[in-house]
């Protein structure tokens, strides 16, 4: 039920929606919950963008290791 899938924003529309590409399949997703721009990687749940995805792998790993470091 809480499944959310990552895609890439390819167009932003004036009607509150954006086009999101999921590996070649495109959908119109509502964009009222997140400030986005074309090219952003986003998480879509139930037809609505709920978050942008951190694409900087180094940054993500740094955050993860920061958490794990206190536990090693």
């Amino acid at each position: 039920m809480c499944v959310a899938l990552p895609g890439v924003v390819t167009a932003i529309h004036d009607n509150g929606y954006a086009t999101v590409d999921f590996s070649g399949n495109t959908v119109e997703a509502a964009r009222g919950l997140v400030d986005i721009k074309v090219g952003d990687h986003v998480l879509v749940h139930a037809g609505c963008i709920i978050q942008t995805v951190q694409q900087d792998e180094a940054q993500e790993l740094a955050s993860l290791f920061e958490e794990l470091q206190t536990l090693s």
Partner: peptide
């Protein structure tokens, strides 16, 4: 409209529209 914290905001977008 069922759901937890993940889905509730989606319903607010519906309400707004």
């Amino acid at each position: 409209a069922v759901g937890f914290e993940t889905t509730v905001p989606v319903y607010t977008v519906l309400m707004e529209q």
